[in-house]
């Protein structure tokens, strides 16, 4: 059991791949945004890669261990200290009963994952322990960590001193610029050639008005094909309006002139077009990018996106780990 002393900024229990098979009931998958760092955190402490762990966002929590535990931190650097001593990222660490883990704002990246040997032991909801804050379900009482709350931990067999090999780490950029993969579709044919070129050749700023529901982007205007203008009236009046349709996770959803990347806690359906979709291999970049950082988009094929996903999956294995 672990006691919550400070919550951080909406720190939540997540698991991977999250709540699957529930679109038809109106539930998005939830789960960690940077699922690469998340899985590495679990592997370090001897868990299954998808076991429940904590996602810290921008500012980490302060926790007190009530019993000895093995834990690991991955992703963004939130200057974690265990009883005042800096804790290395990407490495399993032993904590004794009564020790305090204190974290601050992210110095690098945006999300830090805390795994515990044995995993966070909360009851699954619709097959997943992931917290869905808008739906008030999953995780611990359907909500982010609360001061004075307790995080139940299962029984694990982790050991300290396991670390991720340097060459297997997600390569965080140090200049605030990200090259994000996108695939064309489902509605790229609503955007004219000039608009498609503009999207792919422009720099886009990640707006501070972004969260796990969606990442809002600021950039140039969009222009449309006839399809967006000359359409059945039930589509709605704006060129970006369409008859309500299901939203792929990662879709770049265009509401008026504002593109929003739909993330893990998105609405599952709506009436705006999705000209492009960010594939799962780029989600770790979304998870670690900070407001006002710059995105450029790299158009790749579906097959290439699937190959890059397989490459990331392959690093989420014991082969990526060495003893410190």
């Amino acid at each position: 059991m672990i006691e919550v002393l400070k919550t951080g900024l909406e720190t939540c229990v997540q698991d991977f791949p999250g709540r699957k098979g529930a679109f038809g009931m109106g539930f998005p998958p939830s789960g960690p945004i940077d699922h690469w760092s998340f899985r590495l955190a679990n592997l370090l402490v001897g868990n299954e890669p998808g076991d429940a762990a904590l996602e810290c966002q921008f500012i980490g929590p302060a926790l007190k261990f009530k019993a000895p535990a093995i834990f690991a931190l991955t992703g963004g650097d939130m200057q974690a200290k265990l009883d005042g001593e800096y804790v290395p990222l990407w490495q399993s660490v032993a904590a004794g009963a009564g020790q305090k883990l204190e974290m601050g704002p992210a110095l690098t990246g945006a999300r830090c994952y805390i795994s515990f040997a044995g995993g966070v032991d909360v009851p699954p909801f619709l097959g997943s322990r992931s917290t869905f804050v808008l739906g008030k379900c999953g995780g611990i009482d359907g909500a982010p960590l609360a001061v004075g709350g307790e995080i139940p931990v299962g029984v694990g067999e982790g050991i300290s001193g396991r670390r991720i090999k340097r060459k297997c780490l997600p390569p965080l950029p140090n200049n605030g610029k990200w090259l994000i993969e996108v695939c064309a579709g489902p509605n790229d044919d609503w955007i004219d050639k000039a608009g498609q070129k503009r999207f792919l050749e422009s720099m886009w700023k990640l707006s501070p008005k972004s969260n796990r529901v969606g990442f809002r982007l600021e950039g140039p205007k969009w222009t449309f094909t006839r399809k967006a203008i000359d359409k059945a009236p039930e589509n709605g009046s704006d060129p970006s309006n369409t008859i309500d349709h299901g939203y792929p996770i990662g879709a770049i959803n265009l509401g008026g002139q504002t593109p929003i990347i739909l993330l893990n806690d998105t609405l599952t359906l709506g009436g705006f077009i999705n000209p492009y979709t960010v594939p799962s291999c780029a989600f770790w970049k979304l998870g670690q990018s900070r407001p006002n950082e710059i995105y450029e988009f790299e158009l790749i094929s579906i097959e290439e996106a699937q190959a890059r996903k397989r490459a990331i999956n392959a690093t989420c294995s014991e082969d990526s780990i060495e003893l410190a």
Binding site: C183, A184, G185, P186, N187, K231, A232, E234, N235, I243, H245, G246, P248, I249, G250, A251, N274, T277, V278, P279, S280, C281, I302, A305, Q306, K309
Partner: peptide
Amino acid sequence: FLPGGDRFIMVQFGDDA
């Protein structure tokens, strides 16, 4: 049939409601 990234496919039967 319209692709949505590496893990979605959209089947559209028509263009109105």
